[in-house]
């Protein structure tokens, strides 16, 4: 079973139609996650990470019409084209979700215990009483002290870190095979971030789940993930095993990202080494390479056609940059 990917996304394209505009926040992206594996998705804000993971599972805000194409297979089952009631059955049961902002992810007027227990009732067919017991177990599992009292509290009575633990408990309650965590630590205090991340890693390993971890933080990627997809302007720029991509990044954008991490040997007060320029605003897909205006290596041909993802000859890494790929081949 281990060889068969749990989630297999290929050539996924998402168009969002709103009253104001049409955008394509995901443009032909492919990746896969196996059981027990953790895939990190990194990229600048607005590069389409959230949409890419949520849209195929029908989790878009109201007022947006979603158009999907390509293929998303969960346990071999095609999600694209699946009617909403069928997808609804998968949410919570096969896939658990963790959100960026735990402060707003919980219903403020319902007790925490109910919000966890209803998952067990819904997906494990438990009686309300059994579900309460299960909720207690889960709250203990995510490391919350005084669990009995917590279950009777309301979200606003807890700190951000505790709330995120509750959200994790909810995500785990249906015993999903895949966990999608959308920037689970971004809204938290720095000290709490590490704890939550450790917790996530820990439960993922213990329950042998697959996890998709969306993040901005390269440090998080290095510590937690097996594979990585680097997104830039709705497309995958580079993807492959974390140890290869982080150690020897090849795509100019990945290099820029890794370069931007402050290093110990930096003199204090030295200039921040971010990528110059700003990311493009999404709308119609860009004809050539989206990075061209910001790229050091850009050649005129970059703006002509879209660079394909090409497997480098030595490894499992895929890079969408002909300049780098050809350079490598020539060398």
């Amino acid at each position: 079973m281990r060889d068969e990917a749990l989630l297999n996304v290929s050539n996924l394209t998402v168009n969002l139609l709103t009253a104001k505009s049409a955008v394509r926040p995901v443009d032909g992206v492919s990746y896969s996650v196996r059981q027990g594996e953790c895939l990190a998705i990194v990229g600048e804000s607005g590069s389409g990470k959230t949409v890419m993971n949520f849209a195929p599972l029908g989790l878009m805000p109201t007022g947006v019409t979603t158009m999907l194409s390509g293929s998303v297979k969960l346990e071999g089952r095609e999600l694209i084209g699946l009617p909403e009631p069928e997808i609804q059955k998968l949410r919570g049961k096969s896939v658990g979700f963790i959100f960026q902002d735990p402060m707003s992810a919980l219903n403020p007027v319902r007790r925490i215990g109910r919000q966890i227990a209803e998952m067990a009732e819904l997906h494990l067919n438990m009686t309300p009483r059994a579900a309460e017991a299960r909720a207690l177990e889960l709250v203990k599992l995510v490391g919350i002290s005084d669990p009995v009292a917590r279950l009777r509290q309301y979200p606003h009575e807890l700190s951000g870190g505790l709330r995120q633990r509750i959200v994790i408990a909810i995500a785990l309650a249906g015993e999903p095979k895949l966990l999608i965590a959308d920037e689970p630590t971004t809204a938290l205090d720095v000290t709490v971030q590490a704890q939550i991340l450790r917790l996530l890693k820990d439960v993922q390993r213990r329950l042998d789940m697959a996890m998709v971890l969306i993040t901005h933080d390269m440090g998080v990627v290095a510590g937690a993930a097996d594979n990585i997809v680097v997104m830039y302007a709705a497309r995958a720029a580079e993807c492959g095993p974390v140890d290869k991509v982080l150690v020897s990044p090849r795509h100019p954008y990945t290099r820029g990202l890794i370069n931007a991490i402050p290093r110990r040997e930096d003199p204090i007060g030295s200039e921040f080494r971010g990528l110059p320029g700003i990311p493009p605003t999404l709308g119609a897909p860009i004809k050539g390479c989206a990075l061209a205006p910001r790229c050091e290596l850009a050649v005129p041909a970059c703006s002509n056609s879209r660079p394909p993802l090409v497997r480098s000859d030595d490894s499992s890494v895929l890079v969408a940059c002909p300049v780098v790929n050809q350079g490598k081949a020539a060398a």
């Binding site: 029908g58 989790l59 949410r91 707003s104």
Partner: peptide
């Protein structure tokens, strides 16, 4: 339209349940 409704949806609750419970 509040964010917790997205959470509720992610739990696999249907529209009726979300309207009444959340």
């Amino acid at each position: 339209t509040s964010p917790f409704v997205l959470t509720a949806k992610s739990k696999g609750l249907g529209r009726t349940a979300i309207l009444f419970r959340e």
